[in-house]
Write a protein that binds this DNA or RNA. Structure first.
Length: 580
RNA sequence: CGGGGCGUAGCGCAGCCUGGUAGCGCACCUGCCUUGGGCGCAGGGGGUCGUUGGUUCAAAUCCGACCGCCCCGACCA
């Protein structure tokens, strides 16, 4: 006896009719967990390196994510647009990025041999729209966004959906009259991103990020800690300091041995075959912290000598920032030979005249260290910065394990992370180069200031899987899971269970839940395994307790199980889901 | 772009060294059976052995070239 109003509602999400190609074994090519599970759970299939088809489950999840993004972007007054992915070369040439992007940009020609490319981001297009239409301060501020496919010819696509050649990005762009306006737009995005990632159920950290060589005054990245990540984040639990390793600063561990006192002159000594810091340290019986590391870099074509404490690593990002150069590379061996008269392994700052010498701040105040002599197989002892050579001090080193917070000395952690969002203040880079001008109140032409804000849609899904999985599969947050609840009759050939499960399905739909009915005539084990694998947050099992009018609700993540009266089961789940 | 690994049925793999009928598990189809954690029995379908040259009477197997995919380093949502 069914209620007429309900019996009209068809069961549309019947597992037996859906395409959910789950795999019992992990495909061999998948290394990271999210990649393995996306394949195994039938979310995606690979077409080529860095190109994936999003099957039914992935698409449902992605739609949920984009809806959340859309709602929160709309809530800060951002306006959604849809821009061409296929772009003419000219617009990228205007900003200079046609050349800068190099091989990372997909390029093609049309039938008339005109150059085109596939968009990697949309600063140019957005700015070109703005310059054509925004004329007055009265038109500002504006925030425009899109959720669209981006193309990047990645040198190495990898890790499933984490690094691919075609992906979805929410990118927004703000236009303001002045820095204060940009601050406001930036803060709006910051807050919106927090709401978005909170709603997606992610655990994330907001870190200070490197903002690029041009005009970027401030930048934050939203990071999810994961071994599958490609970034390193430096965190301080005590002070709350959080920064990308590219930008992070720290107090280094003190030198293992105090420097010799006194005003000693550099003194050459023979170090046959000792090239690396470790070899020289062993040979001299002085720790790596007493060595001075000399790296020869080429910054925009000019040689620069970078000096670090022996145990420290150069941060190329910081080095680029310190030199102001765009193009950075280590010098070739022949160049080193030409400039120093010695090979890498015996290089040092003493006597170097023809290039800039940058020294990491950890060398400031040090005395009588070991450095290369610029003569093969020779080193110098008693080298003192500021006396034996004059460097420019700056922060050049990569924060290392064991370093402490720069002001308080509190311990730092270095955490591998996935970047899911990035906000940054562009400044005038595009508005300037592309000629966006508006009149201010005084009738003068001014250049609006811009911000740019991205979110990697697939990365939200991947990061959620990295964060929430166990031996049996995914356990996605209800907000982004393709289904919130699966109703599983243990024995489909049992008429009573079938009817009860159907009723539960309809009830769940009525309550606004994304429900799935597992109507397959499979063994219960198969159904349970599949439900666990695809990560449905709640399962209502209709089985042997049906006779007592009881269904079992299982929470995927905790494995908690609740015996609930049949009529109340859907409501029970709905409350759990809405409680977040 | 530098280094490493792998291409055999939808998935996971063996076979290759030592050339001679292409195999196993899972999945799939049919029937029976079973129904609270990938159940059992029986029968069955499915392969240009990545491509292409070469060696040979004969190549999945030996040699060369190419292509594709994965992983480690330089790039980024």
């Amino acid at each position: 006896m069914r209620r007429a109003s309900l019996s009209q509602r068809a069961i549309s999400m019947q597992w037996s009719k859906l395409f959910i190609p789950t795999l019992r074994e992990n495909p061999a090519e998948a290394e990271v967990v999210s990649h393995q599970l996306l394949l195994r759970a039938g979310y995606i299939r690979q077409l080529a390196a860095g190109l994936y088809s999003y099957l039914f489950l992935a698409q449902r999840s992605i739609l949920k994510i984009t809806n959340i993004v859309r709602e929160e972007m709309d809530a800060i007054g951002a306006q959604e647009m849809f821009l061409p992915a296929l772009n003419p070369a000219e617009i990228w040439q205007e900003s200079g990025r046609w050349d800068i992007m190099g091989a990372n940009m997909f390029r093609l020609k049309d039938r008339w041999q005109r150059d085109l490319c596939l968009g990697m981001t949309h600063e140019e297009i957005m700015t070109s729209i703005a310059r054509g239409e925004l004329r007055s301060y009265k038109h500002l501020p504006q925030i425009w966004y899109q959720i669209q496919t981006k193309f990047r010819d990645e040198p190495r696509p990898k890790s499933g959906l984490l690094r691919v050649r075609q992906f979805l990005m929410k990118d927004s762009y703000s236009f303001d009259m002045d820095a204060a306006g940009l601050d406001a737009a930036y803060q709006k995005h910051y807050a919106a991103y927090q709401r978005i990632f909170d709603r997606c159920g992610l655990k994330y950290t907001v870190v200070e990020a490197h903002s690029g060589a041009m005009g970027g005054s401030q930048s934050h990245e939203f990071m999810v800690s994961s071994d599958a990540g490609e970034d390193f984040v430096v965190l301080c639990r005590e002070t709350g300091y959080a920064a990308n390793q590219e930008k992070a600063v720290s107090r280094p561990v003190p030198p293992a041995l105090p420097d010799p006192e006194g005003d000693l002159a550099p003194e050459e000594f023979h170090t046959p075959g000792r090239k690396t810091i470790a070899e020289v340290a062993e040979f001299t019986n002085l720790p790596e912290t007493s060595q001075m590391k000399s790296l020869v870099m080429v910054a925009d074509g000019k040689p620069v000598l970078a000096l670090l404490r022996g145990d420290h690593l150069l941060s190329e990002t910081k080095f680029a920032g310190a030199t102001g150069a765009i193009d950075i590379r280590p010098a070739h061996p022949e160049e080193i030979r030409e400039w120093f008269g010695a090979d890498a392994g015996s290089l040092g700052p003493v006597g170097v005249r023809n290039m800039r010498i940058l020294a990491d701040s950890a060398l400031e105040g040090r005395r009588n260290m070991i450095a290369g002599a610029n003569r093969d197989d020779y080193h110098l002892r008693h080298v003192t910065p500021g006396e034996d050579f004059t460097p420019e001090y700056c922060d050049l080193r990569q924060v290392a394990a064991g370093d402490t917070e720069i002001t308080t000395g509190a311990p730092l952690e270095i955490v591998k992370s996935v970047e899911i969002g990035h906000i940054f203040k562009l400044g005038y880079k595009y508005s300037e180069s592309m000629g966006l001008r508006v009149l201010n109140e005084a009738g003068q032409e001014v250049t609006p200031i811009m911000g740019s804000y991205g979110i990697g849609i697939e990365r939200i899904l991947s990061a959620a899987i990295e964060l929430y999985h166990d031996r049996d599969g995914m356990s996605l947050p209800p907000s982004i899971a393709p289904f919130a609840v699966v109703i599983t009759p243990v024995n489909w050939s049992d008429e009573k269970q079938r009817a009860a499960a159907g009723d539960l399905y309809r009830k769940a739909k009525e309550l606004g839940l994304d429900a799935l009915l597992d109507d397959r005539d499979e063994r219960p084990g198969v159904k349970f395994k599949d439900a666990d694998l695809i990560g449905v947050p709640y399962r209502i099992t209709v089985g042997k307790k049906l006779a007592q009018g009881v269904a079992e609700v299982v929470e995927r993540r905790t494995r908690s199980s609740y015996d609930v009266p049949l009529e109340g089961a859907a409501q029970f789940v709905a409350e759990k889901v809405h409680a977040g």
